[in-house]
Design a binder for these strands. Structure first.
Length: 551
DNA sequence: TCAACTACCACATTTGAAGTGA
DNA sequence: ATCACTTCAAATGTGGTAGTTG
């Protein structure tokens, strides 16, 4: 396994230098020398040299399962969308490095239109079928572990396997709404919390798109090759392997046919045998997780500070952390919304999450969504420790060295060694003897550490909140694609040929509503803490100070 | 008429509770 | 009483397919 790392050069002396691997993906900004206030280990706002070295690394995002993605994109990836929501396969899984281990980040994924075209399947290829339908409101999927310290995000690959796609615009249950027969590409957002002890540090914001993961949203698969690839690689679709001979309908039909002829019973494999066979097949395929660099970018507050158009995500953090309330701009947004959509007394309390949600057209009932308890902690250690058990195999994706290291390290609640702050992806460690075929959710792994670092943030309503908000495109053209950037020729190149560059400073107008959204999120956190009787609804600045100084 | 969509199906996997024995 | 482990059923995710819709 090859792990591409940022070039070991003094980044600080190479302003705007292109990363040699991501020739395309990243550049280093000026002013990286600017000390970033990380107050975890000190009280005077200065960080240790080790921290300085670590945090001066560019943020480095790598799409996992790259080879699988390449297989799909080589044919033309299709993703099924249903009314109730359908998971993506392959799912988006990324590794991130270069974050400050002690600073909290929110990790968000959404889908952006790949182009302005609508497609149709014509026999054996996709054809353009007119221009795009009216733009749909963005629906963000906030990773359920958000917010979490950088060390947590870097410890394991961040999986978005629970992200669901739908074509039902009325569905507000955290689904990403897409148009059928349109092409989209995943986009990752990393939002850094501000440094509460340094009001000049507004935090940072990066986003990365993955053109190699672009797909056409469909309600039924069009390309049979895609169907076959999905069946061959998705454990849930094992029942359709071997031309579906496992299935009852096929069995019945086959039985009837074989009775008519001398045919050998083609269904002579038990499900377990199929599983073993497939496992062997998977090993043959050797689906190695690609760690090729997708994107690399330094996340540095000075970067932001020098920006002409600071990102409103950051501003949202900054404003909230320094003032404890909405910015004038945000207030304006809130009031504008209130004037349009509110008649209830709640509008007089803009800091309330509920009032914010109530102000939104899509807001309906509960704005608070408990975090999904997708873990089974009592069961996992036994699965790991038992050498006998049993019929479980690993998915190809989980067989990668990097993945295995990360999983193993998480099994033992020992304090991480300092050298592990940046996981060494090269260390070969054996996989635990017993795990599910499906990927183990990283939330499970994280919880294994038994450190209640997230206690204060539960529940985590980010996804729900974001997805209840209709972004109003301010710069909509005739097609209404408000969040679409102008399309550059490079967008029509494929995979790594295309330039993948994080868009650090989008036009401020474009994100006025997103700023509003993020403020809502932050307000909601305060509100939830209050509800949990953990801390009262005090200013976020004070809260972060306490967290970072270990009070 | 037909492409796009929906609902339901059977199968595989995951999850979590209940049961068992040391 | 506790813990480790097994078993089992319900829940969930999957593509196939027949029927519906516009």
């Amino acid at each position: 396994m090859v792990m591409y790392l940022p070039e070991e050069r003094p980044v600080l002396d190479l302003p705007y230098q292109m990363n040699h691997l991501a020739n395309n993906y990243g550049y280093y900004p000026q002013d990286c020398k600017e000390p970033i206030c990380r107050t975890q280990h000190s009280t005077n706002g200065r960080m240790s040299s080790a921290e300085a070295e670590l945090t001066s690394l560019p943020v480095h995002v790598s799409l996992q399962d790259r080879e699988l993605w390449d297989k799909f994109s080589g044919i033309g990836t299709e993703m099924l969308i249903t009314k109730s929501g359908r998971r993506m396969f392959p799912s988006c899984k990324v590794t991130v490095t270069g974050l400050n281990p002690k600073v909290k980040y929110v990790v968000i994924m959404d889908m952006v239109p790949f182009d302005n075209r609508k497609y149709k399947w014509n026999k054996d290829c996709w054809e353009v079928n007119g221009s795009t339908d009216p733009h749909l409101p963005n629906r963000f999927f906030v990773h359920p572990d958000s917010p979490a310290p950088g060390e947590k995000w870097m410890q394991y690959p961040i999986s978005f396997h629970k992200l669901k796609l739908t074509n039902n615009t009325l569905n507000s249950n955290g689904l990403v709404v897409l148009h059928s027969m349109h092409k989209y590409q995943p986009r990752l957002h990393i939002v850094q919390s501000p440094d509460p002890c340094n009001p000049h540090n507004p935090g940072g914001y990066l986003r990365f798109t993955f053109p190699e993961a672009a797909f056409v949203a469909v309600t039924a698969y069009q390309n049979q090759e895609i169907t076959k690839l999905k069946i061959d690689n998705n454990p849930f679709a094992k029942g359709f392997r071997d031309n579906g001979l496992n299935r009852k309908r096929f069995r019945d039909k086959e039985t009837q046919e074989t009775q008519d002829s001398d045919g050998q019973d083609k269904r002579d494999l038990t499900p377990n045998e199929h599983a073993v066979g497939q496992s062997q097949k998977d090993e043959d395929v050797d689906v190695t997780v690609s760690s090729s660099v997708d994107c690399s970018r330094t996340l540095n507050f000075s970067d932001v500070a020098s920006s002409v158009t600071p990102n409103p995500f950051i501003s949202a953090f900054k404003n909230l952390s320094t003032t404890g309330g909405p910015s004038p701009q945000q207030t304006h947004s809130i009031l504008s919304l209130s004037n349009r959509h509110l008649n209830s007394p709640r509008e007089a309390r803009p800091s309330s999450l509920h009032s914010l949600c109530a102000a939104l057209p899509m807001a309906q009932s509960s704005c608070v969504q408990s975090s999904t308890a997708d873990t089974n902690l009592s069961r996992l250690p036994s699965q790991i420790s038992s050498p006998l058990n049993h019929h479980h195999h690993y998915s190809p994706a989980s067989q990668t060295p990097g993945r295995s290291i990360i999983q193993l390290q998480s099994y033992f609640p020992t304090p991480p060694h300092p050298s592990r702050q940046c996981p060494d992806m090269e260390l070969p460690l054996p996989l635990p003897p017993k795990l599910s075929r499906m990927q183990l959710p990283e939330s499970v792994l994280r919880n294994l550490e038994m450190t209640p670092v997230y206690d204060y943030i539960n529940p985590r309503p980010f996804t729900d909140i974001l997805n209840r908000i209709h972004f109003r495109p301010l710069d909509s053209g005739p097609t209404g694609k408000g969040l679409q950037h102008p399309h550059h020729p490079e967008q029509f190149l494929r995979g790594s040929e295309r330039e993948l560059r994080p868009q650090i400073y989008p036009a401020v107008q474009e994100y006025i509503d997103q700023q509003f959204t993020l403020n809502s999120m932050l307000n909601s956190q305060t509100e939830h803490r209050s509800q949990m009787d953990y801390v009262s609804a005090r200013p976020l600045t004070e809260y972060y100070c306490e967290q970072q100084t270990g009070k």
